[in-house]
Design a protein around this nucleic acid. Sequence first.
DNA 1: TTATTAAATGCGACTTAGTTGCATTTAATT
DNA 2: AATTAAATGCAACTAAGTCGCATTTAATAA
Lengths: 118, 118
Amino acid sequence: MIKEKGLSYTQAREELINLLLHASTPLSYDNIKNSLSMDKATFYRNTALFEAAEIISSFESNDKKRYYFIEQNLHPHFICTNCNSIECLKEDIIYALDGYKIESITIKGLCPECQKEN
Amino acid sequence: MIKEKGLSYTQAREELINLLLHASTPLSYDNIKNSLSMDKATFYRNTALFEAAEIISSFESNDKKRYYFIEQNLHPHFICTNCNSIECLKEDIIYALDGYKIESITIKGLCPECQKEN
DNA sequence: TTATTAAATGCGACTTAGTTGCATTTAATT
DNA sequence: AATTAAATGCAACTAAGTCGCATTTAATAA
Ligand SMILES: [Mn+2]
Ligand SMILES: [Mn+2]
Ligand SMILES: [Zn+2]
Ligand SMILES: [Zn+2]
């Protein structure tokens, strides 16, 4: 995966790709900093590189943090503006936007839990 | 609009609502700071208040800035990850997410301009 | 209209996710 | 094994947004 894109294969990059491959939702630096052996600067330099190489995607959540993910099938992510939880929405929503290339879709609002509380 | 929600009607709030009402795309503080007579703290305190009162919505773009908008019909916004431009996507896309309340939808990717350059 | 008061504002200090420069280490190639 | 350009760690930095507090203003009562 890394080598296919002509990038050199380092310990840090392997570690980062593995974490993202096995995650069930997008992850921020903050989420995984304790599982990472690399420095924060290395994390961000590599995520930027992987995004440019189109190995990973990301979005900015409500909590001012960026979340990174690797996913085979394009699906929207739901972000709760109350509790900041992030969910994968597996229901297929087809976006045919002529001339645009779609990298990620985020839907913000209130999750079922938070809506009840109102 | 402001009074309907039981908020007091101040010069700063009128100014802010007017700017957002007449904007053709979502706006960040940076976009309009030169047109604003209020302080940055007041801008952010009022946007937070308006969001809580459900007068405005917002999303975090790719450039780490938050964009605010008032819109009658719910439609997605497209954010180009290359040039950071923001567009309203008027084509109606119906999201029926049972149990969720949807406040905003953002689609990220490459706009037609930036995709050509590749 | 004026007096009262709680809420709104401006200002400066602060927070914090992410970035950058530079010295050191490491992966890739010879 | 030697070479070298790229990758990394560290510490300093940047900038969007937040917060405390003194001052001003909107709303209400007199
Ligand atoms: Mn997902
Ligand atoms: Mn719009
Ligand atoms: Zn929630
Ligand atoms: Zn673009």
